[in-house]
Design a protein around this nucleic acid. Sequence first.
DNA 1: GCCTGGCACTCTGCGCGTGCGAGTGCCAGC
DNA 2: GCTGGCACTCGCACGCGCAGAGTGCCAGGC
Lengths: 338, 338
Amino acid sequence: MLSERRLQVLRAIVQDYVGTEEPVGSKALTERHNLGVSPATVRNDMAALEDEGFIAQPHTSAGRIPTDKGYRLFVDKLAGVKPMTAPERRAIQNFLEGAVDLDDVVARTVRLLAQLTRQVAVVQYPSLTRSTVRHVELLSLAPARVMLVLITDTGRVEQRVVDCPAPFGEASLADLRARLNSRVANRRFADVPGLVEDLPEAFEHEDRGTVSTVLSTLLETLVEENEERLMIGGTANLTRFGHDFPLTIRPVLEALEEQVVLLKLLGEAKDPGVTVRIGHENAHEGLNSTSVVSVGYGSGGEAVAKLGVVGPTRMDYPGTMGAVRAVARYVGQILAES
Amino acid sequence: MLSERRLQVLRAIVQDYVGTEEPVGSKALTERHNLGVSPATVRNDMAALEDEGFIAQPHTSAGRIPTDKGYRLFVDKLAGVKPMTAPERRAIQNFLEGAVDLDDVVARTVRLLAQLTRQVAVVQYPSLTRSTVRHVELLSLAPARVMLVLITDTGRVEQRVVDCPAPFGEASLADLRARLNSRVANRRFADVPGLVEDLPEAFEHEDRGTVSTVLSTLLETLVEENEERLMIGGTANLTRFGHDFPLTIRPVLEALEEQVVLLKLLGEAKDPGVTVRIGHENAHEGLNSTSVVSVGYGSGGEAVAKLGVVGPTRMDYPGTMGAVRAVARYVGQILAES
DNA sequence: GCCTGGCACTCTGCGCGTGCGAGTGCCAGC
DNA sequence: GCTGGCACTCGCACGCGCAGAGTGCCAGGC
């Protein structure tokens, strides 16, 4: 077990390194943090910390930098979440309140997160399967063509065009619309399949094929993987990454383009609170030198989606975690209101 | 006026520089293009081209690179648009055909463009004002709360929640819905304001306030600047930019985050065909070392939005223009079908 | 008059050696 | 167990020289 002072030394190293972006030496440490001991003592502690794998030297006779393991310890034990100040909270609220629709909420959230944390922000659209149905609309485009529009309680809208096997009259359409809505309105999307199963039976034989087709399109829309949309922003912040650019930034940009990767990344975080994945803890190779700070958000008590930021492992964890948590909270509020 | 051979020399310089990314010298030129003259002659031509401002030397005793003016001449006079090959065209079509909704079409288009051109792709959502109305839907959320959903012929959906000044019955709502649709369905969005002006008069006095509120929200939705959404992709391709990274890439990423800037960029192109803006021709400073190749696309003969790519001024113009044009054509087809 | 080969000149990039400074590890003493 | 001192190790910035690429110009030839 590490002594209290050694933990303090680790904390100091992390803080200084995050601040200066340069390996930190024993002398600088004692000067900037009054640890009450001499550089020589700190050197011994550092040697111990290095043995344990919490810090490393980029090369002999350079200062130390934290390893992923070191950051992990720092996040878990040595640092809290830095709450936002009152003015910051007000600014967040003001900024989000001007949003006119869901796209706008998400877009503003991304910008806000990117600005607050000065990192790359990722916001997932509220998930369909975890939302509830507000309304299902059916529009006749042509005799055998129907547009299906789904509206969720979070304001998300999905639409699909359905080609019907047979012409479908306005009356039948109105009937289906009414029945469908009476069954699924205000129910969770996840429950919809069970609720509509027997619907075709209520219709004339000639319409059953069409009803089934519409329903199966509806169900497809719900389960489809690409239901999970997301928006990213603040990629310009990647340029503050390091001095050894192309090599570092490239794989990150590539990973960010792969929505699937990002969704998995956010999805993995099961913790109800803020989750931090550091460096190699991220499954995707391109993100091995980044950390991901994410959290769920939702209109009620329950999370309907996630949001977070991607930044260098050398980031201000307490501040970032605070910002991410605060933004998630306010986005939840905004969604609940609309 | 420049002699025919000098133009050929310029063309050769552009082609070689685009290929190698290195300043091209007189000797290399004569070796790779059979101009039928000696390096010394080419040197004279180069000196002339430099006097005219078409090419420049990064430093004394280096090869020449084209200037913006040189690229401009190349694009206007010396190069055509390289058409896609048949397999490429098939690939584009196949890739786009799998799309399920408008978001998906746009997302696929961005990916496709980025892959084909190996540059940053930008696709604008079909504009509202230039589209036609397919349907307007009104949903009652609460006695004095209505959700307004707009669906365009291009598949785009917009929704707004309207707080009404007074409770609004289901019957009135249905009435408004019917009147609204009979007036505006299949009309161009731009014409909507004139078509609904006198609608409130058809209603009972107590409902007029609500009707006006709903209508004004509808009109707001149409004119709002943020109606102009867009999607970008392929930012990872920026890493192929140059060797002097951070300085080049940073402002570009920043510019790309500013949707307003991008929209203006695409908007400026008035030409019905493919438009190319080279280097300093772009108003935005951050994009002074990039070129933008854009073109309008639409479901009918008319352009409803633009798409294009952003890349280094040193790009393969004929190929890029061909790809952009081809993609626009197929996206138009897909939109027309759905 | 235009093209050509030759020649001197200029400049960048690269490899190399050097000195400096930061930082370490270890040890003897308190 | 902490401290001051000391020798040691590297990385980095700097200066130098050299090779190579490319130019401009000139005198001669078609």
